[in-house]
Design a protein around this nucleic acid. Structure first.
Lengths: 342, 342
DNA sequence: CTGAAAGCGCTTACAG
DNA sequence: CTGAAAGCGCTTACAG
């Protein structure tokens, strides 16, 4: 593989000049520029990024730190669409994505491995469990960072800007709940995500409660079941909830809603005639079930795209740090909800 | 961030010694080793990979070159499970994955971008379209490489070993076809992938034809429709095939089979009573449809794992280049197939 | 067993 | 506008 020396020799200039031409520095005469570019062509030269990186320049790599184990990640359609958005932007801008998932036993390992490399221009992180502080090291490293999730207050740096991007979980849950209430439902079961896991879950819970309150409908803790976002956990949650005879169930993601739908069907409950069902995310399959799933659409791809765009402009110093960006959600009404049987 | 000089100073040794300790070279006295390790701890030092890379050592990064655009990739459950397998192994061995997808207009871009970096210990590629030679540059670079797919004969290096890993597509298609034939079906529609796209498709076609032949059932070209592996294309293919009154359809992946199932249902054909359906892959959802989908299971995760393992041992010079590894497939019989209505 | 020195391939002040 | 030289942080013969 050709090096910058080969190019310099061929173009009869110094390596410094080659470097300048390649980085588009002004003040290089057109004729030498031309000669250099020609040599670059002929040798099909491209600079080794490791060398660039070492001498303090960009690496054209952004890290993606994912505090989940691969088997979890690759079965979560929502997260995958977020990552797709990131990859789309990276791809367009000729950046590569350095992927770092976590060991099952240690969510933080995703961050640590990435940092060790010291080889990325910036990092996109997914928010980790409430209360943990994965980014302390990251913060200390001073590397550009954007989080997909909610701002976390860091003891170490209470005033720093979080660069956080997330959807309007509160409003999504509020609207979903009010949709059911407007249909006359008063016994609304809830399938939540793990307690104390992520801010998004807390926000959705808040939306659910505020929705009930707006209709003067009491919050009933026994109507809340906790899943882990898998279809199976939605199935189990439905097993717990249905004996309490809710007329509707609101689930914090679509997969769990589908699990609940399956269980309902197995015990002979018709959706939506005897049970209304609302999900969250609007994954691809939500419109493929029978009936289609009413759900709160999150702009997943867009979330990833915006995170990547923000990160790239932070890296390029084209924009300033920010605290948070909130993306709107949208209630998508399909066949799985209907007014309560009278 | 601490450098090797900081560590050397603190441990009162040379940087050479630090380097040796860190790379586990023998012939370092236990006491200095201990002192160095201590300093490493105290400074929480980790070597910058860019520097390592430059001085000719490992980068602990493997490249994953995917000749598809992100929107395609992230909607293909089979490919995602393959990648999951790769990531699992990488993760375990403390390797990172450098992701490179293609621009829509140019599948090769995935390879080129990766190569430019010159920053990976090895590359895993997905087989590209039959006839194209994406790996010429890669081959020239001499970098370790494993392909998920079939060996492609390279004009440039006709005798090189391909390091290719794939499933036994021929046998899978053969068994699927014979399963239908054994159930009495004689009009078996086929939903293929794009023609001249990948060896796997050719092999499955061969399996289908040989299956028919074994039952003295003629191959009828008009019963073959071509899709692009999306559910929608399976739906369209069924639109074309059903007017020809096949009693069964064999689809080259599960998503297209599900599309066909949807169309069949829309036109009032019951599966499996009036139409038997067989897929390929056994994605997660194949068991979730109603009825469950009979399909040819490919060990997707395993495919990725083995590719990663092979690559890592090639990198470590623990094993030799190979031509191909073929993984067995398994016919999974569920509710979507039944003997032909008499 | 340990260390001085060269080298990996770039970029960036700095001088001209 | 151009180039000589130092430096980025490591590793690896080589000498001791």
């Amino acid at each position: 593989m050709a090096t910058i020396y080969d190019v310099a020799r061929r173009a009869k200039v110094s390596t410094a000049t080659v470097s300048k031409v390649l980085s588009n520095t002004p003040y290089v005469s057109d004729t030498t520029k031309e000669r250099v570019l020609e040599a670059v062509q002929e040798l099909s030269y491209s600079p080794r990024l490791a060398a660039r990186s070492l001498s303090g320049n960009r690496t054209f790599v952004i890290g993606l730190a994912i505090p989940y184990a691969p088997d979890y990640l690759f079965n979560d359609p929502f997260l995958l669409q977020v990552i797709r958005g990131v990859e789309e932007i990276a791809n367009e801008r000729d950046y590569n994505l350095l992927f770092s998932t976590a060991l099952r036993s240690n969510p933080q390992s995703a961050y640590n491995r990435l940092l060790q490399h010291g080889y990325v221009d910036g990092v996109i992180t997914l928010e980790t469990a409430v209360g943990s502080e994965p980014s302390r090291k990251l913060e200390a490293s001073g590397i550009a960072r954007v989080t997909i999730g909610y701002p976390v207050s860091l003891d170490a740096a209470p005033n720093r800007l979080a660069n956080a991007i997330h959807c309007d979980d509160y409003r999504g849950a509020l609207e979903a709940t009010q949709h059911l209430l407007a249909l006359g439902h008063r016994h609304i079961g809830l399938i939540s995500g793990p307690a104390n896991f992520m801010m998004a879950i807390d926000e959705r819970l808040r939306g659910y409660r505020d929705g009930l309150q707006a209709y003067n409908s009491p919050f009933q803790p026994e109507l809340v079941a906790y899943g882990d976002f898998t279809l199976e956990s939605g199935y189990s949650a439905a097993q717990k909830l249905l004996p309490l005879s809710p007329t509707a169930i609101f689930s914090f993601n679509d997969r769990m809603a589908m699990g609940a739908m399956r269980y309902a069907r197995e015990v002979g409950l018709s959706v939506p005639d005897q049970l209304s069902l609302v999900g969250f995310d609007d994954v691809d399959l939500a419109k493929a079930t029978e009936p289609g799933l009413t759900t709160v659409r999150q702009p997943a791809v867009n979330l990833g795209q915006i995170a990547a765009q923000k990160l790239l402009s932070l890296i390029a110093h084209e924009s300033e740090a920010f605290d948070e960006v909130v993306l709107p959600v949208e209630l998508i009404i399909r066949g799985s909800t209907r007014s309560v049987a009278s």
